[in-house]
Design a protein around this nucleic acid. Structure first.
Length: 634
RNA sequence: GUCCCCAUCGUCUAGUCCGGCCAAGGACGUGGGCCUUUCAAGCCUAAAACACGGGUUCGAAUCCCGUUGGGGACGCCA
């Protein structure tokens, strides 16, 4: 796939990439109200295209496999869907992945309460839509009762585009395409303080670079828009109102100070840390009084103390949580914006998401989401929790221990197809053991239940080997093409201004621009990083001090957006005032870290050219190098 | 601390559901060798793992229980 185009999956909204267009039939209408969210049936002809995958885990059957099918039992047509509907809601042990009920939860008690859906079976999504709850914009992808598979990636625009986002996006995209469905991009910018448009743009750019096309999103629109949560606040407000009205949520007037004190106390007492429900007991009058006197408040989700809430994870089976362990989550912040929990449930419902495929870190808040679906009277989507990418020390992947920005990998010349392939190797494997493969190969046998649930370490050595494989496959002409795109005219023009005054001959351009254009590893030395040269002579700084400076600068630069010489200078300047560090003390090691040279064009200009993701990575790399190479003597 | 998830070479993994074909296979990395003016690539080769303890069974990497270890969550972040 690599040779044909840099991004084999063209961005073709509503049509899917050419290589991925396996099934594009219209959404199938099911005539059975009340079961809109039954595992959607596989299309006619699906079996021809894709022989049934072998499902290792009973509880993780593909959409369309009913209980009976999973167990290899006959299923009389009439009963079949109803039974499946029940099973979706019941904490029934048969749905578990393991052959025999593996009871979870404390003391191995079989969960009995908590999942309330089965009795008053909530109206299916179709019914809800008919009542006028269809997404803004009217158009209906999800016709009543439609079973078209819809997945989404919902990044938060609060920083660099994250490799974990790409990982989750990959599997969402594959799952949707495998089942002939839609893959939606939604921007979760409900954190007013940290969200930025620059970050959002960078995320869209990187996802496009990755070659994972979405069918609906903030840039291309779609029938369920807007796809930016900050533009949907009215929707959340209405929904919060509904919960307040039906008593599943309540207003909380507690101050931040009270909450902090409460948390501190609970920590000291070593009990579980959660809200004590004080405002739950507030009388209507008390609430009215506080409201009229202008107190700010948040809306919290009420959770009964008794019982158990069961989350059915498609990859893990049933997971039960004692309700008393679950906090009364804030749903609406005092700024009127929703928290992730509310926005995500409301949007997933309104956008007719059938399968929530997200990172494992969400497992523990899923019972809150389950409760929210119940509180609204909606049927929940299927949940699939992906393992977390890890650092070499097996902690959750983080920028402090690993470059995590997609922009970084693009800048250092990782090919998007290699990145996709590599991410596809994280926790996943093809049945035949192939390791070099493209999206079409992945799709052919794609089955989420093949995922290895242990968190995979993101191993750059293997990524670079894979990238080399792809480069070799390019051949000389392909390589020339790619390099031309990599050193694009625009990119050269960024570098030209700082070099134009410093060249005697054109051939000096390449060596002088190497650290500006490339992203690769720099060779650090103690002399470079620790020597502070001035008129007074040479002074050696302490490695620990320089390490700290480098780390603090990297940290400060994390949030700088847009990335320009001026903004970088301002941020570094501010850091210096805050810490009392002298500029010269800071700038010299920063220059060394970022360029591995003693002399360069003006520091902030070259940093702007090098790019934020690479600068931050180099600062951290240099700091790490210093820690790993303590200066013994001289 | 509480709750939850996970557990095969240093790393990515196959095998686990349906126990015997596994004295555990492949890949990255590492060591050695071949090829080659050199390097890379390629080829050959070596070292390298079923966390531990019980149980079930004729038989356990695979099923059950426990322990240990790792991770995540416990925000008016997502």
């Amino acid at each position: 796939m690599g040779q044909r185009a840099p991004a084999p999956l063209r961005h073709q909204p509503r049509r899917g990439g050419a290589h991925l267009r396996l099934q594009q039939e219209p959404a199938v209408r099911r005539g059975l109200p009340g079961h809109a969210l039954d595992p959607p049936p596989l299309r006619q002809g699906h079996q021809r295209l894709h022989p049934p995958a072998q499902h290792r885990r009973a509880g993780a059957a593909p959409p369309g496999a009913t209980h009976g099918e999973r167990r290899g039992l006959p299923h009389p047509g009439g009963q079949r869907r109803a039974r499946a509907g029940e099973l979706r809601a019941l904490p029934a042990p048969h749905r578990q992945r393991r052959p025999r009920p593996r009871l979870r939860g404390p003391r191995g008690h079989r969960p009995r309460q908590g999942v309330r859906a089965p009795r008053a079976h909530p109206p299916g999504r179709g019914a809800a839509h008919r009542r006028g709850e269809e997404p803004r914009g009217g158009l209906s992808v999800s016709a009543p009762g439609a079973a078209r598979i819809r997945t989404r990636i919902a990044p938060s625009p609060t920083g660099d585009p994250h490799v974990g986002t790409a990982y989750v996006a990959l599997f969402n995209c594959l799952y949707a395409k495998k089942h002939g469905g839609d893959f939606i991009l939604r921007i979760e910018d409900t954190d007013q303080v940290r969200s930025t448009r620059e970050s959002e743009a960078a995320i869209l750019r990187s996802l496009t670079w990755m070659g994972l096309p979405w069918d609906e999103g903030p840039d291309i629109g779609g029938p369920c828009g807007p796809y930016r949560q900050s533009e949907r606040t009215e929707i959340y407000r209405e929904h919060a109102e509904r919960l307040l009205a039906n008593g599943t949520a309540y207003r909380c007037f507690c101050t931040g100070e009270r909450l902090d004190a409460l948390r501190a106390q609970q920590l000291a007492e070593k009990t579980s840390v959660q809200y004590d429900g004080a405002c739950r007991a507030l009388s209507t009058e008390a609430v009215r009084e506080r409201l009229s006197s202008g107190h700010t408040f948040v809306v919290r989700l009420d959770f009964p103390r008794d019982g158990v809430t069961v989350v059915n994870d498609q990859l893990r089976g049933n997971i039960s949580f004692e309700n008393k362990q679950i906090d009364h989550q804030v749903l609406m912040k005092s700024d009127g914006f929703p928290t992730y929990h509310l926005a995500n449930v409301v949007d997933d419902h309104l956008m007719a998401i059938t399968d929530v495929i997200r990172a494992e870190e969400w497992i523990s808040s899923t019972p809150k989401h389950v409760r929210l679906y119940e509180a609204f009277g909606w049927e929940a989507p299927r949940f699939h929790h992906l393992p977390l990418l890890r650092n070499a020390d097996r902690s959750k992947i983080s920028k402090r221990k690993n470059p995590v920005s997609l922009d970084y990998y693009e800048r250092i010349g990782v090919l998007p197809e290699a990145m996709r392939n590599f991410l596809g190797l994280m926790g996943y494997s093809l049945p035949d053991g192939r390791e070099v493969f493209g999206l079409p190969d992945l799709l052919e046998s794609f089955d989420l239940t093949r995922l290895n649930l242990a968190g995979p370490v993101f191993d750059r050595a293997k990524l670079e080997w894979l990238n080399g494989e792809y480069i070799r496959k390019l051949g000389p002409e392909g390589l020339a093409d790619r390099v031309r795109a990599y050193f694009s005219p625009e990119r050269l023009l960024e570098v030209a201004p700082v070099l134009v005054e410093r060249l005697a001959r054109l051939d000096e351009f390449a060596p002088m621009a190497s650290y500006l254009l490339g992203g690769g590893h720099l060779a650090y030395t103690h002399e470079l990083l620790l020597c502070q040269k001035s008129r007074k002579g040479v002074e050696w700084a302490e490695a620990t001090e320089i390490t700290e400076i480098l780390q603090r600068v990297a940290e400060t630069l994390d949030t700088v957006r847009p990335w320009t010489a001026a903004t970088i200078e301002a941020a570094v300047g501010q850091l210096c005032t805050e810490t009392g560090w002298k500029k010269g003390r800071v700038l010299s090691p920063v220059r060394a870290a970022v360029s591995a040279r003693e002399a360069t064009p003006p520091l902030f200009e070259i940093m702007a050219i090098i790019g934020g993701s690479v600068c931050r990575a180099r600062l951290r790399e240099a700091a790490e190098w210093l820690q790993a190479h303590p200066r013994t003597s001289s």
